[in-house]
Simulated scan of single mutants.
Amino acid sequence: MLVLEFKTYGKSSQFKAIDEAIRTAQFIRNSCIRLWMDVKGTGQNDLQKYCAVLAKNFSFANELNSMARQASAERAWSSINRFFENCKKGIPGKKRFPQFQKDCRSVEYKTSGWKLADDRKTITFTDKKNIGRLKLKGTRDLGFYSIDQIKRVRLVRRADGVYVQFCVDMNRLEELEPSGNAVGLDVGLTDFYTDSNNQTIENPRFLRKGKRRLKMAYRRVSKRVKGSINRGKARQILGKRHLKISRQRKDHAVKLARCVITSNDVVAYEDLRIKNMVKNHCLAKSINDASWYQFRVWLEYFGKVFGKITVAVLAAGTSQECPKCHAIVKKSLSTRTHACQCGCMLPRDFASALIILRRGLATVGHTGSYGLEPCNALAMVRTKLGSNYAVRA
């Protein structure tokens, strides 16, 4: 599934209608959650049928397209199903019980309720919410895809406007010549990552750099009267500041992950549990600012697109093991140089990257965030790179 996003332009009355459609989608989702909580044994089909009951009892719900109502019920069921799956797997801690949504920002249509123009530059929503015709502006060309390939259309409200997302049913696959390289990546806070070739990438620290403007935006919000128009404007400015930082992080992760994947045939990285790492309140802000998980997600995605091998290895002990004699050398986080009795002396992150690469070449493939099938990494390396492959240290 490929998601194409375009910014929309229209009248203020149209954007008010979009906000009303989003509130209606939120109402349907929360009503389905309430039905599941009150009536024991409620299933997915019961939630779909309940959408017709809501449309009959509430006129504003009837104004929303029927497939958009079903999509909202599917959102409710996905949260319920996630809770059941967490209980079955025995995940420790909270099982993420379904919650009522307080701040919904999108409404999703399926294959009806909308119509694209022949030139693919405008879209018209045909339900009774009176959204009407909206202009589309983006860098992608929808003319390459047929209408039958578009399975979902989302209206998403953000701080800087409204966007339309098209979910296109297609598999993105690209072919590249084998580069003959394999690399291990050790992410960090001083440098974004250090690879097994002793190359480092600077940590951009977008949140730290935008801290001054964020403080000013927060100060403006705190000085405005609650419920006033000026407070709403100040909140919108604050939202734009945060949106810019999140876009900077995504842009950095996408470009860097694509560069790493296209330059190597095998990429090994640590299987980090970010949720547990941010419990350290001293490092939580810096870890979130680095956005390691987003970088990993895009590594796995581009690995699937370009047919490259991505391997997540166990992170435990990668910074303590000697890459030369494999002895365990205990060192604190402040110790940045690896010094072993065998005479091996390397920068800590470089030594860790070598261990990550070695583990990656000796383990099976990783089923990542995008559902990649497990594979034998060593067998694929021999097939793609030949039997005379050697790791460059």
Rank of each mutant, 00 (worst) to 15 (best):
S228G: 12
D251I: 11
V221C: 11
R213M: 10
V225F: 09
L243I: 03
M216F: 00
I237H: 05
A217Y: 00
G227N: 09
G227A: 04
G239E: 11
S228P: 03
Q248A: 07
K215F: 02
G210M: 14
K240D: 06
M216Y: 01
V225A: 12
Q236H: 14
R219G: 01
K226I: 12
V221S: 03
R220M: 14
R231C: 05
K250N: 09
G210K: 15
I229Y: 13
S246Q: 06
L207C: 10
V254E: 02
K240P: 02
R241M: 01
G227K: 05
H242Y: 12
K244V: 04
K209D: 11
F206L: 07
I245E: 01
R235L: 03
I229K: 02
H242G: 13
R231T: 13
A253G: 01
Q248R: 15
S246P: 04
R208S: 14
K250R: 08
L214A: 03
L207E: 06
K240N: 04
K211E: 14
H252C: 09
R208T: 12
L238I: 05
K209C: 05
L214D: 06
R235G: 14
G210I: 08
K226N: 13
A253W: 00
L214K: 12
D251R: 15
R212H: 03
G232Q: 04
R231L: 13
Q236K: 15
R213T: 08
R220H: 13
A234V: 05
K233P: 00
N230K: 00
H252V: 10
S246T: 01
R247I: 09
R235C: 05
K215Y: 08
G232S: 08
L238A: 09
L207V: 09
A253T: 01
R220D: 02
K226M: 08
R212W: 00
S222P: 03
L243V: 02
L243D: 04
R241N: 05
L243Y: 14
K244M: 08
K240E: 10
R224I: 13
G210Y: 13
R219S: 04
K233T: 01
R235Q: 11
R208P: 07
R219E: 07
R224W: 10
K209P: 00
R249P: 08
R219Q: 04
K226P: 04
R219T: 01
R249N: 11
K211A: 06
R235S: 07
K215V: 07
L243N: 06
R213H: 08
